[in-house]
């Protein structure tokens, strides 16, 4: 299971059987290029694997005023 924090809302979600960034973005309905996918101090591209127990931040990039 992975834990995902959506920013800027701060909403936390958990997912089972999601092992790549590509699958995670599909689950979230988020477009690549519209969000940063953050693990610790690094950014993850769509092909990167995600392991159970990891905390992933998905940060919206579009500013709205």
């Amino acid at each position: 299971m992975i834990t995902v924090v959506r920013e800027p809302e701060g909403r936390e979600q958990t997912f089972e059987h999601v092992h790549t960034v590509h699958k995670l973005l599909n689950k979230l309905g988020a477009r690549p290029g519209a969000v940063l996918v953050i693990r610790g101090a690094e950014l993850l591209t769509q092909d990167r694997r995600i392991e159970d127990g990891e905390l992933i931040i998905v940060r919206k990039v579009r500013s709205s005023g």
Binding site: G33, R59, V61, S63
Partner: peptide
């Protein structure tokens, strides 16, 4: 540069 590049 787009918002994505600036955010990165």
């Amino acid at each position: 540069l787009g918002e994505y590049e600036n955010a990165c």
